[in-house]
Design a protein around this nucleic acid. Structure first.
Lengths: 337, 337
DNA sequence: CGCTACGCTGTAAGCGTTTCCACCCTGTAC
DNA sequence: GTACAGGGTGGAAACGCTTACAGCGTAGCG
């Protein structure tokens, strides 16, 4: 473990150092640095110059202490490698920046158990926390709800937890996707799952099960929402002899298609594959992916609106689910005769 | 802008609240919370219980103030959407976590001008800063070098700047890639560039220009290292009638191939395409990408070693470049006759 | 010319923690 | 029974900053 020594007092350039060097009081330096209050122009210039020379940088800790806020927003998500998350984060980032908030992103890929710990830890130094596709158990969520710091749930709906939340509708479009498949004649499909802890995975699976009314028989095989995860599960999936593979997300679909090709199976001539999310690459893959375009921009915007409201202690009515659309491209086709 | 009100003193649960509620001094509470010093077991238990009930959470700001450190590491990178960056960050994350550091990731995608500002801003609340593929001008780097906080440059080599740095060799493998292309008979290629501000782009281009000795004539067309960027520049690239398109990175290659397919051109039968980085998806695309496997694990490990050394004020000898290897897959082939 | 008023600067009081130091209390040894 | 040692606890200073408040000087007006 790295040595945790205090910064030697002699080294650190504080507001005092600057004040002394400039021959003014620390109050003046503070005023100059914040730029707000009235200070005689040439005095301000002198202070600025000295601060510059000393490369003075106000201590965020001290400033945060007295201000009661660091103007930081925390974002926690399962997997930064998934461009989908990143896109909604980026959109939130716009809003946050406009409102003067910095955004700190933490990812707990690999260990879902770390998520709550990470959240609690981060909670100490942020004004608000955004949980994307959180996998924290309900009890943990309740603990989070008790904290003074606002916590926003994105892409997870949890009844009975008093937290603002916003999510994309997963059920309806997945139902539509199944309808599309049914129309093409598919009757036996395999769902390549995401994490069981993820609300989105549960919703998508719920829709697929419901597709029984369309005459579709579905089996689920476990995976993890990554490219490799998709690649690795194909053998098992094929044992169920499906005519279509419905994947948890686009990344998984990519891995699945890769393995299928390796096995000499053509998509969609021999077997159909669908994704979910419509990340950038989806439309550029070969074959171009039939998937669900989950509105990242909208989601990001609404998420930030909710967060801002929470920061201002406004009560918000949880909005309805944001709707998503199926986009049919090349990876799905009629059942081979 | 969200209202910046101070947290009402009445609401915040501080160490004082706990001390009063437990009927002890704040010193005792502090000792109990940090768990280190000796406190009578049942007193400690009582304090813990009270703290729990009040859901007391020590102020990071206050703690950071007195400790002189928040044990935060800052990471700044150009584009989180690029899995390559993410992979090396993840690796560093392991090291950082093991050493008790939290990692805060900031991305300045879209506006390179923001990078220095972001860096300076972040500098205030971290114990160290890692710049990935930084595009900050040399002068900005020098400013960073003057700060007390250690700053590490990853994947950028800048002579004359007194900053620790570590990078993957871009020149040699790009040269090899050109050799591979030359052997296949390619003589006229187009380089689809990354940002001119990026050291890696300059290195790669330097290698390609040098490939003249192999009989390769190269032209460069501007792009931005994204999928869309690759897609959009294909028309222009084709005006130079190349037999191969060498792309700045895998993402760009994906976009390029997508557009090529749209134009009815087959890869590699009609035209060859190469990538760089070997991100996860590269080996799963159709066609599987010929690219350079840039050692993310090694890079991440070495980066953290250097950072730890810097945190401990150890002097380090900058290691040589980390070598990378060409991996030949399906996207390159002989020149069509 | 004197008084008022206003604008600029400095003093000092916190913000919530950690930790040094002093203190008290108990138990032990003489 | 008294003195001493030592562990456990509380008091208080310090970390660097912001800001209310006070104080000073100057300019304008009567």
């Amino acid at each position: 473990m790295a040595d945790q020594t205090r910064v030697p007092a002699s080294r650190r350039v504080t507001i005092n150092t600057v004040a002394k060097a400039a021959g003014v009081s620390i109050a003046t330096v503070s005023r100059v640095m914040s730029g707000s209050s009235s200070v005689t122009p040439d005095l301000a210039a002198r202070v600025h110059k000295v601060a510059e020379e000393l490369s003075y940088r106000p201590s965020t800790a001290a400033r945060g202490l007295v201000l009661g806020s660091l103007r930081n927003m925390g974002v926690i998500l399962p997997d930064l490698a998934n461009a989908y998350f990143f896109d909604v984060v980026k959109q939130m980032h716009h809003g946050a920046t406009a409102d003067g908030y910095r955004m700190l992103v933490a990812d707990y890929s690999g260990d879902a158990a770390d998520e709550l710990a990470t959240a609690l830890d981060l909670l100490g130094q942020v004004d608000g926390l955004v949980l994307l596709s959180s996998r924290i158990p309900t009890s943990g969520l309740k603990e989070l709800a008790r904290q003074a710091t606002p916590v926003l749930l994105v892409n997870r709906v949890e009844l009975g937890v008093d937290l603002p939340m916003v999510a994309v509708d997963n059920f309806t479009p997945m139902m539509e996707l199944c309808g599309h498949l049914a129309k093409l004649g598919h009757r036996r499909i395999v769902y390549v799952k995401g994490s069981d802890l993820a609300w989105q995975n549960r919703e998508r699976w719920r829709a697929i099960e419901m597709a029984k009314v369309l005459g579709i028989e579905a089996t689920a095989v476990p995976s993890d929402g990554t490219i490799e995860g998709g690649y690795d599960v194909v053998e098992e999936a094929l044992t169920h002899e499906p005519t279509a593979l419905v994947c948890f997300n686009d990344l998984t679909a990519l891995g699945v298609i890769s393995k299928l090709r390796e096995r000499g199976l053509r998509v969609p001539e021999d077997i159909s594959v669908t994704g979910f999310d419509d990340i950038d690459m989806a439309r550029h893959l070969a074959p171009r992916l039939t998937t669900v375009v989950s509105p990242k921009i909208d989601l990001g915007d609404q998420a930030w609106s909710l967060m801002r409201a929470a920061l201002n202690n406004e009560t918000t009515t949880s909005p309805p689910l944001i709707s998503a659309d199926v986009v049919i491209r090349e990876s799905t086709g009629p059942v081979p005769s």
